[in-house]
Simulated assay, not measured.
Amino acid sequence: MPSNPVFNRFNDDLSKGRLPEAQPQYGQFGTPEQQQAARYGYPQQGYPQQGYPQQGQFGQPAPDLEKMYGAPAATAAQSGRMTLNDVVTKALGLFGVLLVFAAIGWFVGKENQGAGMALWLGGMFVGLAIGFIISFKRVISVPLIVAYAVCEGLFVGAASGFFNTVYPGVVAEAVLATLCVFAGMFAGWKFGLIRVTDRSRKIFGLMAIGYLLFALVNVVLVWTGAIGNPFGVGGTGPLGIIISVIAVGLASYSLAIDFDSIQRGVNARLPEKYSWLMAHGLLVSVVWLYIELLRLFARLQSR
């Protein structure tokens, strides 16, 4: 999918203050005892405590305020806030689902070419529809996110099986290249070699939308027979290779935007449920990068 509206919407909402849940709520600090003290007006350490009874309501002992306020503050995980570990865990889970169904799509396509083609097209278009629903749906739906991983798995598996039959070894090359680009983009972003700014986000967004429209038109032209070459516009010639290189560049920079968006979400103390949305957005970018690398290597092998 040649764009990532998940992070586009998130960053737009965050910058315009549409995510009130990102701000810490009153009383959501420290231990549960500290939160209870703030909620019910218990005296704070260092203030005069004249007039406060030594016994609590209904004869219960008053809380040990000195112990409560001396305790360490609650961690992000304890206060129900999203952490990087949450995103990584859920992303690994979604990639696991994708790989399982990719294997199914691969073997079904090997046994029955017609069924494989159905999984290829069905997974691509249904996954695209589900992806847009997730992106613009205000309520985070875990079942929809998992369903997207299933559809993308069937699509990736069926497409990979076809490409590997026609261009032997191209899938292994694309998988290795995807892992290398992922690691390289993360290192580049982490050490400041690749910067993500508001201006670069806007430019990338416009370019991604343009490429999405081009890709959809290209798919229609190929499947209707308007263009005889299976790669569509440009074919395996210089123009086609240039188009693939541009697409790989866009997908690669999408990863840097994803890393930056995830960090922004953690810093904004978003609720833990947003880790599902972040993991889904990362899955979108990785699948996009893999497909574009697969097409690029297949074009190069065809020359």
Rank of each mutant, 00 (worst) to 15 (best):
Cys180Met: 13
Ala147Trp: 04
Ala159Gln: 08
Thr31Asp: 05
Asn164His: 14
Arg264Phe: 03
Pro271Ser: 06
Lys137His: 14
Ala177Asp: 01
Trp276Glu: 06
Leu296His: 10
Tyr167Met: 03
Gly27Ser: 09
Ser254Cys: 03
Asp258Lys: 03
Ile209Cys: 00
Leu283Thr: 12
Ala74Asp: 03
Phe186Ser: 04
Asp258Trp: 03
Gln54Asn: 04
Met207Ala: 14
Ala149Tyr: 11
Gln78Gly: 02
Gly205Ile: 01
Phe136Cys: 07
Ile257Lys: 12
Ser141Gln: 10
Val166Ser: 11
Ala159Ser: 09
Val171Lys: 05
Val284Cys: 10
Asn229Arg: 06
Ala38Thr: 04
Arg18Val: 00
Glu21Gly: 13
Glu173Phe: 10
Gly51Met: 01
Phe107Gln: 12
Met124Arg: 09
Tyr148Leu: 13
His280Lys: 05
Phe10Ile: 03
Val100His: 08
Gly109Val: 02
Val142Leu: 08
Arg81Ile: 00
Met278Glu: 06
Ala73Arg: 13
Val196Leu: 07
Gly17Ala: 09
Gly265Asp: 04
Lys90Ser: 04
Arg18Trp: 12
Ala256Arg: 08
Val217Arg: 12
Leu65Asp: 02
Ser302Trp: 15
Asp64Asn: 15
Gly161Asp: 11
Val87Ala: 07
Gly59Cys: 07
Gln44Gly: 02
Lys190Trp: 15
Gly56Trp: 12
Arg269Ser: 13
Ile134Tyr: 13
Met278Trp: 09
Phe58Met: 06
Gln35Ala: 15
Val88His: 11
Ser79His: 10
Phe162Gly: 06
Leu212His: 01
Gln44Asp: 03
Phe7Met: 08
Gln50Arg: 11
Gly161Gln: 13
Val284Ile: 05
Gly161Leu: 01
Leu84Cys: 02
Leu289Trp: 12
Pro53Ser: 14
Leu144Pro: 03
Ser135His: 11
Leu282Arg: 12
Gly184Thr: 02
Leu98Pro: 01
Gln35Thr: 08
His280Met: 11
Gly131Cys: 05
Pro238Met: 03
Gly265Ile: 00
Asp260Pro: 06
Leu296Phe: 15
Leu289Val: 01
Ala187Val: 09
Val146Tyr: 14
Gly80Tyr: 10
Lys190Pro: 01
Asp13Arg: 14
Gly27Ile: 00
Ala174Met: 05
Pro143Asn: 09
Leu221Met: 12
Val245Met: 09
Ala103Val: 02
Tyr42Gly: 04
Met207Val: 02
Tyr42Glu: 09
Pro61Ile: 00
Phe10Leu: 13
Gly249Asp: 01
Ala91Ile: 01
Val156Trp: 07
Val171Arg: 05
Thr224Ala: 08
Thr89Ala: 12
Glu111Trp: 14
Met1Gln: 03
Leu294Arg: 14
Gly27Glu: 03
Ala172Gly: 12
Asn218Thr: 00
Val126Trp: 13
Arg201Trp: 09
Asp12Phe: 14
Met278Pro: 04
Asp12Ile: 02
Asp64Pro: 05
Glu66Trp: 06
Leu216Gly: 06
Arg199Lys: 15
Leu277Trp: 15
Leu277Thr: 05
Leu296Asp: 03
Asp258Thr: 11
Trp106Asp: 05
Gln55Phe: 09
